[in-house]
Design a protein around this nucleic acid. Structure first.
Length: 306
DNA sequence: GCATGTCAAGTTGTG
DNA sequence: CACAACTTGACATGC
């Protein structure tokens, strides 16, 4: 069992900077690139620091925030690493991060945000999505991440037809993206049942979000979904990937979708215990929630971690 | 200093 | 129709 942290720390002194397109547009190009260079170098240094911190805390996986290199694919202010004054140094930091993660067996992943929709009927949306995925593919290659995880997108009235469109886009992705691409069930549209056979057919590993599954059930039990997901990962010789979170205001009354600060141990599937798998902890208390869950698992389930 | 509104982008469901 | 929700937080602005 490998518990993962998503993007940020709340206590540990690790920080990531960003910048808006709007503020960049007020500067001449050379000042834009100078500013971006500083931020990218800061972020790669802090990625390395994040991995060292994960290692110290016993956290076995880390989701890297999408805007590690802010606005890189923005149509007006986008840039290449080679454009940045400290591009070489930034590359070198990424390589150091890759070596550290590999040496310490920290699994790395990316989770492009909601704007990446490969199944959209709008070709411009698909083109933008591919561009963003290629950016994350470049990052994943450089730091040695094995997963770029996305959702299936909207329904547009017909899930089968929409997944067909998604399938047709796959050949347009580079090998760097395609070999890392995974699909995750969401909490409004696509359930595990909707995606599992599709994923199996096209050898796209399925990231199982048990919280989304509980918010949007499909008749499959947690055990069944876990097993089916695990089979697909096994087919490609890789470790099952899953997400866990707890509802902010409980399962009774109110909206269960917003995430709580911590994981309620009652929400942790018993069938995951002792399994060889990666579980990203999606909780607002970040590393504190991962650490708390480790202790809860030790105390309440008597399961050695990791 | 600190509070507050804004930030590239998509889609769905709610009020 | 506007707005929140989604891995969210950090930055820019104005007091």
């Amino acid at each position: 069992m490998r518990l993962g942290l998503c993007c940020l720390f709340i206590r540990e002194p690790v920080s990531f900077r960003t910048i808006t397109a709007k503020s960049l547009l007020a500067l001449p190009r050379d000042r834009q690139l100078q500013k971006l260079s500083e931020i990218c170098l800061h972020n790669t240094s802090n990625l390395h620091l994040a991995l060292e911190t994960d290692q110290r805390l016993g956290i076995g996986a880390f989701r890297i925030m999408s805007p590690l290199f802010p606005r890189m694919t923005h149509p007006a202010v986008g840039y290449l690493l080679e454009d940045l004054p400290e591009g070489k140094k930034i590359r070198q930091k990424m390589e150091e991060a890759r070596i550290f993660a590999r040496k310490n067996d920290i699994r790395l992943s990316f989770h492009p945000d909601q704007f990446v929709v490969l199944s959209s009927p709008r070709s411009q949306v698909v083109a933008n999505s591919i561009r963003e995925l290629e950016y994350q593919g470049m990052l994943a290659d450089a730091v040695g991440a094995d997963v770029i995880n996305i959702h299936a997108g909207g329904v547009y009235g017909d899930k089968v037809q929409t997944l067909q469109r998604l399938k047709d886009v796959l050949p347009h992705l580079s090998a760097a993206v395609r070999k890392r691409l995974t699909l995750e069930n969401d909490d409004v549209s696509y359930t595990p049942r909707d995606l599992l056979s599709f994923c199996e057919r096209f050898a796209i590993p399925f990231v199982y979000d048990v919280h989304h599954h509980r918010c949007h059930p499909d008749g499959l039990s947690v055990e069944q979904a876990t097993k089916l997901a695990e089979n697909i990962w096994k087919d490609v010789g890789r470790e099952l990937y899953a997400h866990i979170s707890s509802p902010r205001s409980g399962w009774q009354g109110g909206n269960p979708k917003p995430h709580a600060d911590y994981i309620d141990p009652a929400d942790f599937p018993a069938c995951w215990l002792g399994r060889k798998m990666t579980v990203d902890v999606e909780a607002k208390a970040k590393e504190l929630a991962v650490i708390a869950l480790m202790h809860q698992m030790k105390d309440r389930f008597d399961t050695p971690v990791p």
